[in-house]
Amino acid sequence: MEVWIQAFANLKAYAPGGAGETLLSVPEGTTLQELLERLGIPPTVEVVALVNGKRAAAQTPLASGDRLTLFPPMEGG
């Protein structure tokens, strides 16, 4: 299946397309946690992960066409 990924700030370094939204092929049933590992994001790097604009648990299985947004926790605006 394919999912869309867009990452920001320091997490861009782990996203396949760098800047911009990128389509990535992953095995059916891949969970959010597995995807983050597949991208090579070390466990010490903090990630806020949204699936289709909503916070998702690490064990959430992804569905084809899902849009993932990854950004670091932010200290404010």
Binding site: P42, V45, L50, M74, G77
Partner: peptide, 24 residues
């Protein structure tokens, strides 16, 4: 911050757009 460079230092508070836009 050793493994998590502060996003506000990298891009200022305007990086917060990512959080608000993505949550709608």
């Amino acid at each position: 911050t050793r493994d998590n460079p502060p996003p506000l230092r990298l891009h200022g508070t305007a990086i917060t757009v990512v959080g608000t836009q993505s949550h709608g």
